[in-house]
Design a protein around this nucleic acid. Structure first.
Lengths: 347, 347
DNA sequence: TAAATATTTAAACACGTGTTCATAAAATTA
DNA sequence: TAATTTTATGAACACGTGTTTAAATATTTA
């Protein structure tokens, strides 16, 4: 069923059908009504490719999800539990605005070529990066090529030739500050930090937030307080072991983990050392993934407003696509500390 | 950058470029090599819409994910924790076969029209349903229309006019049988079942598996043993309360929940009644979602081989798309019982 | 060497839709 | 009523690629 046949059935020309579909003003009301009736009756839908070829832009945006590199195969495929609801929220919001969503999992730099292909072949008219590295040259390249892109969790881009993009971050810095401050307020002094992947902006900013709170309280950050993980559970386990191996010497009483997944690994390690949470070690995570409220003890953590971030990034991207007016917009969304059972006052 | 320009740069005609791209045999090797060099140098990619219009089929498949109806907004958007890794595994497998994936969340019947649109406009060349209701008229309609579809968790379709589709199920019947049998082997006799959504094939078959095991052991299924949930945590909570409210009379010592999410809700309810798991009540879930191994006590459950199911369904669908040869294939994938801490022998 | 055949290429058309342009019809003004 | 403006409509072209057909070139055979 094509527009030619609709035209015949409605007794008008194909151009008139096209004008009805595209809401032109100069169509007689009764003609319009007649054509619309036929369209509805036969369930006609324009051929998207033909439309695209004739100059209409596609109503599809991409979601580009960075895969976790290290760790086991299972985790690789099953994907980041923080990212997954983010994806769902974006799909939902895009749908509300009449857009479909194509999901791509980015494993290596080869996959950036796929993105380029999808844009060049006019399948996508925009895209959102999730979990990307900070300052990614590949993303800069795509933005420079003029593709309409938004990035979650990315430093403000100051390069002169990289403009026209959207960046939405949660306030990682303040979140990490609040988390650390919470431990300080509870009387802890020897507070360790399990860093996330330092290639991600969130990893960097959360470390900064931790430093800020410690500095503000005039607490010295000893070398042994810091361990470098990569946001995976395994790395959390290893980092906790490393941090606590000289516990008698270090007197560490609290850990701020850069995300919940690592915090879970750390909790396993802590329990295995026969230390109690929170009596011996208080621990704070970040992200408020679903498991956080189920583990025992329930994890104190920082919650990012995923729904809000997804709305902001999607609305802005689609506005950018349709109006063409984004001049490097940069958003920071506030976060919330959720106090549960994994932290307690030092007596 | 279009094929016309490539042709000019390579000093050949546009048709020759097309023949090179589409691997025709009658192109001189040196010509072919020359054209390929230019294509690579300029990173040329054919305009997908133009290709589609000229008769090539799109390399995009849809993943249609049914949303949970009841329950809170958060859960709605954040999506089913069982479905989410499934989606990831399908995307991964499709990518390996050179296909991209468009994800659609199905909230109501209106959304089936969207699917029709996507097929009619030639954006999609196939699709996979996740979490769909059993015997869905809407899906039957789409299959009848000739769209190439696969469905996870669906009864074998016997209607004469509904053919050419692929169905992949995990062995829900045997899984539920194993779960119940496990409890019986542990000496339990008064075993309750929290049913899942009876609109889903998995909900139906798991109840059947439970019945089979009970019958085989000559255990009577009292009316109070059965409670009807809908796969959400809330419903699990309510069902457990209902089942256990006359505990002194019923002597129920074990519960088989139709999925893990409801089992979590049930565990909350059980704890709130000051009963111990597994000392007072043993509980078995289904799906082996990630949280299952983190809760305390860790949940005994049934694991479906998600990766395998995703491979089977994706491989078959793409084969169907490319070769056009599927005559109602029906697959059942075996499952595995994972025994953890939430079940114990009755002494 | 001429003829027959095999190989390679270029031109032309098709795919379905949007849009421009010219024209016909209707409405308004003089 | 005639002239002008406004409105409505259909014909023709453009979008980029695949494919068919006819022609040109190279190769082989007699």
């Amino acid at each position: 069923m094509y527009s030619k046949e609709i035209a015949k059935l409605a007794g008008v020309s194909r151009s008139t059908v096209s004008r009805v579909i595209n809401n032109y003003s100069n169509v007689a009301p009764e003609t319009k009504e007649k054509v619309e009736r036929v369209i509805k009756e036969y369930g006609y839908v324009p051929h998207a490719s033909a439309q695209a070829l004739a100059g209409k832009v596609s109503k599809i945006i991409g979601i580009f999800i960075a895969n976790i590199r290290s760790g086991d195969e299972e985790y690789r495929v099953f994907r980041n539990v923080y990212i997954s609801p983010f994806e769902a929220a974006i799909i939902d919001q895009a749908d509300k605005l009449g857009y479909n969503t194509l999901v791509l999992i980015i494993n290596d730099n080869e996959d950036f070529k796929k993105i380029r292909k999808l844009f060049n072949s006019k399948i996508l008219s925009g895209g959102i990066f999730l979990g990307a590295n900070n300052n990614s040259k590949e993303i800069f390249g795509l933005i420079e090529s003029g593709y309409k892109l938004a990035v979650i969790d990315q430093e403000e881009i100051k390069k002169k030739n990289v403009k026209n993009h959207i960046i939405v971050n949660s306030d990682n810095y303040t979140g990490a500050y609040k988390a650390t401050k919470h431990l300080i307020d509870y009387g802890h002094k020897a507070i360790a930090h399990i860093c996330g992947d330092m290639n991600k902006y969130s990893g960097i900013k959360r470390l900064e937030g931790y430093r800020k709170a410690m500095k503000e309280a005039r607490l010295k950050i000893k070398r042994e307080y810091i361990a470098y993980g990569d946001f995976t559970e395994d790395s959390g386990f290893k980092c906790a072991n490393q941090i606590l191996k000289d516990k008698n010497k270090n007197k560490i009483t609290a850990i701020f983990s850069s995300n919940d997944t690592m915090a879970l690994g750390a909790m396993k390690a802590i329990k295995r050392m026969d230390l109690r949470i929170p009596e011996d070690i208080s621990i704070v995570g970040y992200d408020d993934i679903r498991i956080a409220s189920y583990v025992s003890p329930a994890l104190t953590t920082v919650r990012s407003p995923i729904l809000e971030m997804a709305s902001v990034v999607t609305d802005n991207l689609i506005n950018f696509i349709e109006k063409g007016t984004s001049s490097s917009r940069y958003y920071i969304i506030p976060v919330e500390l959720i106090i549960r059972e994994s932290t307690m006052k030092l007596t």
